[in-house]
Design a protein around this nucleic acid. Sequence first.
DNA 1: CTAAATGCAAATGCTTTGCAATTCC
DNA 2: GGAATTGCAAAGCATTTGCATTTAG
Lengths: 144, 144
Amino acid sequence: MNKQEAFFKEYLRKKGLRFTPERSVILKAIVSINGHFDVESLFERLKANDERISMATIYRSIPLFLNSGIIKESIRSDDRIHYERAFGRDHHDHLICIKCGAIIEFKDDRIEELQELVCKKYNFKPVEHKLGIHGYCKNCLNKK
Amino acid sequence: MNKQEAFFKEYLRKKGLRFTPERSVILKAIVSINGHFDVESLFERLKANDERISMATIYRSIPLFLNSGIIKESIRSDDRIHYERAFGRDHHDHLICIKCGAIIEFKDDRIEELQELVCKKYNFKPVEHKLGIHGYCKNCLNKK
DNA sequence: CTAAATGCAAATGCTTTGCAATTCC
DNA sequence: GGAATTGCAAAGCATTTGCATTTAG
């Protein structure tokens, strides 16, 4: 049993919820995804693996993965909510290409620090933040 | 005729589109809103002013206001797209209270500069960015 | 004139939910 | 056993669209 499974089981136990085969399969799929995903792509991935889990079950499992910290909301595109694995990964921000859709992850400690300062200034207690820079990626700039 | 109206008319003219009474009324409403809004609240505001403009017309006008630069997408909450006036306003980022929903606008030039540096590093050409910090505002911290 | 715009109602598409059957603990 | 979970289909809701009618330019 890997770390995230133990972690998720513990979360469920504390909440009095169950670790079902479906949740196990969904968790494995989530962990196997490196980039961003939405419910649809998760469903397709499961179907490709001959797993017959309904959309309803996936939708119902998402809050569990969110609240447990296994995943977090990512950038939104095409009007769908996208997620990304959070467990065992560092925080990062995104460069999003508005032409090809490419997503580049980055982290800048100085930006993080400055955000802390801004929060202090406003007596605001930050919980999380999202920074997305939209523009043209290297490849798309060259093609133009 | 005020600046934004002239500006919007010019945009429409260039696109071969029309400046209709409906668009005029919607534009006035948008300009009168200081904070953030969504289609629903825009509709309610118009109704309060005895303006009978259909939701469909509002929805169809949004891309025009977006593309002309009169408004821009703001933070998203409650599954609805929120907008804010962009014309004649400086760029800013947001602190969003996850308890009471309060929104505090801020701008930090150093953060902006660091973002430029990040983009340079990745040969990325930024067009716009969104930074939202979610947490607890001053008031909600005191109440806890 | 005539292409664009409007209002209405129907359609769309993502997400949620009621319910009966199943299953984990 | 009994509450939690599942799948299915139906419902919800924000947003979009087809169409007949009106209207800006």
